[in-house]
Design a protein around this nucleic acid. Structure first.
Lengths: 206, 206
DNA sequence: AAAATTTAATTAAACGTTTGTTTAAGTCAA
DNA sequence: TTGACTTAAACAAACGTTTAATTAAATTTT
């Protein structure tokens, strides 16, 4: 019917946008990949740009969750909360790395700037949670005095550096041609271990 | 004459590619921005794609320098060398942030994959220098045992996270609409201070 | 040094494709 | 028979590139 087909089109669009960018993907490409007539895309979404917005709308809900319960978990101290956030973030971003790449392509460009606010708003809650944990930890003297904003930048930046560009990732971690960082569990473990090690050293006194 | 005009076209292209991407920038846009006839671009460069390659060729020389003399500086210990690299990298990338954005857009896409190797090769020397400093430091027991590749990822990733997307950068560091991270010296100082703090904590024993 | 000739630079116009979008006719179930 | 879905075809606009004619500069010949 209708709702399945709409999601099917969105999935095909994410795949193609991630590989070729928004301008580099034609409506005909998307239609062919989704196995529907070209006109269906405008029939369902109104325009190519509105299809993009529908994609953001659908996927962004996926990122507006989970972190808050970590914040309120009484059984964890601040360091354990940071660790939980790192696990959670790496897992979420890696499982959605194609969509993640699409929106980061978008944030680099000046076109369609109207979407930037709503995209960035997706991360607002996560940033607030992260920041409040850091500030609590500093108040309790568990953490040393750090720049909370840039500490978040380092965490997210490390993940993005390996997630956004496959050739750059493969070059940096010295991997061969057939290596796929986004499905390799050993790689994920190595990434998580490294980020935790960096954050522990950065945050903990002594 | 000829060589000036070619550089003038390349400059206009970088500006537009950074804002709109490769596919989002038309040859007519570039010609208009550079103040030349459309046909001149194909006359000088052969095609839009070859213009892109010429841009990479011209700019990449800018990144293939400097780090090696830091490596061989006998007056600096390994930690001081890391600090020098951080200073050097932040300065170079910020001064060329538009070109830097263009090539990172490119690395995210599957189109023109033939260029990826030569782009990535630009960083090869820098990575090698960085890695050998880290390994030397670990051998001398000045540095603790870390993952050298991912340590580089964190350093570069932190810089890229604030450099590649202005709206994301402004959101993460809580800045207003008229704030420009790429020219703000206070911001640069804050970034450098943070990265050094992270790297010191990460690398130094106790 | 001037004139003649060759080469290089520049232009407006046109080329054939591809683009996103719309139309108008058709199918099918309710 | 209504209304939502689906289609092939057509739309104008924009794309990268090429052409053929013209101007400017450089080189050679007188």
């Amino acid at each position: 019917m209708s709702i399945d087909k709409k999601e099917h089109i969105v999935s095909a669009a994410i795949e193609l946008f991630a590989e070729n960018g928004f301008e580099g993907t034609s409506v005909r490409d998307i239609a062919a990949s989704a196995g529907v007539n070209i006109a269906m895309i405008n029939y369902y979404f109104g325009s190519k740009e509105k299809l993009f917005e529908a994609m953001v709308e659908e996927k962004s809900t996926f990122f507006r969750e989970k972190l808050e319960e970590i914040l309120q978990d009484g059984t964890k101290n601040e360091l354990a909360k940071i660790d939980a956030i790192i696990d959670n973030y790496v897992n979420r971003l890696m499982s959605q790395h194609k969509y993640h790449r699409v929106i980061h392509q978008e944030l680099m460009l000046k076109q369609r700037e109207g979407l930037h606010d709503s995209i960035v708003a997706t991360f607002a809650k996560n940033k607030a949670v992260m920041k409040s944990i850091l500030e609590q930890g500093m108040k309790k003297k568990i953490f040393r005095k750090v720049d909370p904003e840039f500490t978040i930048v380092t965490m997210i930046g490390t993940i993005n550096q390996v997630l956004l560009s496959k050739p750059m990732c493969k070059f940096l971690v010295d991997k061969g041609e057939d290596f796929d960082p986004y499905t390799d569990e050993v790689f994920k473990k190595r990434l998580v271990t490294h980020i935790k090690q960096v954050m522990h050293a950065h945050l903990l006194n002594k």
